[in-house]
Amino acid sequence: MSRALIIGSSGGIGKALKEELESTGCDVVGLSRTENGLDIADETSIISVTTGLKGTFDTILVATGSLSPRDQGPEKTYKVLDAETAALQFAVNSIGPMVILKHTAHLLPRDSKAVFAVLSARVGSIGDNHLGGWYSYRASKAALNQFIRTASIELARTHKRSICVALHPGTVATEFTRNYTTHTSVSSSVSSKNLLNVIDGLTPRETGQFLDWAGNPIPW
């Protein structure tokens, strides 16, 4: 990929993606709350930060997300579900990435491979949910997956070689997961290489899919 836009470029995975792409000679533009004041849950902020972007991007990758807003931790039972906290999860994890697509789709090339990818999570799989818990995070990622599946159909009408996918990065050792990792994790650097390898190998046949870090389909 010759030019990429990374949303969430100051986070653990986003920063690693930006650095890995830059090491290959890719022209990378990074946007984040820390660096540019981008609030993924505020459409006005998204418009303000993205309006000045010029040219086209072969890849737009949204690497934002919220696992535990307000430091309350993922819900283990519906008895502690808080409506406002759940709504915030959806604003950040589901709606935000789609608003990014709304305001950046015109930056994707129409006559060549164009990738719009978001970081989802395996726990957003309905078919693979055997443990329960984590209500808001699971549901917000499941909603994101449906958004991406639906958007892939519409985007293909105007961008014939487009690829719109949800990607599970695996369990990555970042501040994001520090308090919730219960099994083997990989570094942000390793995760970014895995994700970029998957993206490099994608074709329009894979648009609308939910894939893991190795490129394997995950049940919806």
Rank of each mutant, 00 (worst) to 15 (best):
L144S: 10
H103P: 03
D111H: 07
N145S: 04
T104W: 01
A87D: 11
S120K: 07
E84W: 01
F147N: 15
F116Y: 15
S94G: 12
V118G: 05
L88N: 11
G127S: 12
V99I: 15
D82W: 05
A117E: 07
G127K: 14
Y78T: 15
A86T: 12
R110P: 00
A105Q: 13
Y135A: 07
R138S: 00
A151F: 04
P97L: 06
A86S: 12
N93Q: 04
A87K: 14
S120P: 04
V118K: 01
A114I: 03
I100G: 00
D111A: 10
A121Q: 03
T77H: 15
L144G: 09
I126L: 15
V115L: 10
N145Y: 08
K79Q: 13
V115W: 11
W134T: 00
S140D: 07
G127D: 14
Q146R: 09
T77I: 11
T150W: 06
N145I: 05
Q89M: 13
G124W: 01
T150D: 10
T85E: 03
G132N: 07
E75I: 11
L119W: 01
A105K: 15
G132F: 05
L101P: 11
L107I: 03
L88Q: 14
A86Y: 00
H103S: 03
N145K: 05
A143P: 11
Q146F: 11
A114H: 05
A105V: 13
R110N: 05
W134C: 00
G132M: 08
A114N: 05
A114P: 06
K76L: 13
T104V: 15
A142G: 10
I126W: 10
Y78S: 14
K79R: 14
A121N: 02
F147A: 15
L144F: 07
A105T: 10
T85K: 08
F90G: 06
A114Q: 06
S120Y: 03
L107K: 09
R110S: 08
R149G: 03
R110C: 02
L108R: 04
L131D: 08
G127E: 08
A142T: 12
I148L: 06
R122Y: 00
L107N: 02
L81S: 01
H106Q: 14
A139K: 04
D111L: 04
I148V: 15
G73D: 00
D128M: 09
P74T: 04
Y135K: 07
Y137F: 13
L107P: 02
A117Y: 12
E75W: 12
H103Q: 09
D111G: 05
A143V: 08
I100C: 08
K79H: 11
V80H: 04
H103I: 10
G124Y: 02
K76H: 10
S125N: 09
A83C: 06
G127W: 14
H103F: 12
Y78V: 15
S125Y: 11
A91S: 14
G133T: 10
L101D: 00
R110K: 13
V80C: 01
S120L: 08
I126F: 12
